[in-house]
Design a protein around this nucleic acid. Structure first.
Lengths: 113, 113
DNA sequence: TATCGTTATGATATCACAGCATAACGGAAT
DNA sequence: ATTCCGTTATGCTGTGATATCATAACGATA
């Protein structure tokens, strides 16, 4: 069979996504790699898509999340604003334990009894 | 602000959805109304879409979920198989408490501190 | 001043999905 | 017997979202 439980969690404002697991992972990847470009390839999406999603989050939250710099030695780069770091941190705490919650219940109701 | 937490939960097999909150609600609507057509309009989607989703679930689970009858006094109708009833029941238990879990954590990390 | 990788967008192609249309079915009413 | 009606079942087509491609601007370094 190989059934497996899946779950997702996100936050909306005016019925539009402002933060999600995927978007938070993207922000974390930007923090790690120091560039939107590297973060995008790490996430397996085009730069275009990554950039658009960041714009969406910033517009909808009305908060600047990513500081960007064009040109320079490495061609430029990006980093998270303190506000973004705070959002990522809070979202991670918010989402912590969800997978365990779901897989526990899955075992209980789909594997055992 | 009016930020609000959202969540979803579903079950996959070979990376394809076999059951989800939406699909289970659709099955429940079929059980209540006695027809795919009425269930579809109750769910706010076209009959086409509802029918396709049911086919998907049946194919991927390799289980007949809906007994259908064409023609007759009321034009026909549909009802859930015992297997479908069992799946709906287990999924409901599986998903129970998720909303509370999420909204509780949301309050804790996004509203309070 | 030439180079190079990154940011920032426009333009175009592709694809899942929604909406529309239609055939088959069969109990009930005429 | 025949017409009627609402439902099942499925093909066809338009459309909006998304993915892919292309290109300009930028500026520290060599």
């Amino acid at each position: 069979m190989s059934l497996e439980p899946k779950t997702n969690i996100w936050i909306e404002k005016d019925n539009k996504v402002v933060l999600s697991l995927w978007r938070v992972r993207l922000l974390e990847a930007i923090a790690e790699t120091g560039s939107i470009s590297a973060a995008a390839s790490k996430m397996g999406v085009s730069y275009r898509r990554a950039w658009e999603k960041i714009q969406e989050c910033e517009t909808r939250l009305a908060v600047k999340l990513v500081d960007t710099q064009t040109g320079g030695s490495g061609g430029g780069g990006s980093s998270l604003t303190p506000e973004a770091v705070a959002y990522v941190d809070r979202f991670r705490k918010f989402a912590a334990g969800l997978d365990e919650f779901v897989s526990e219940r899955f075992e209980k109701y789909f594997l055992d009894g």
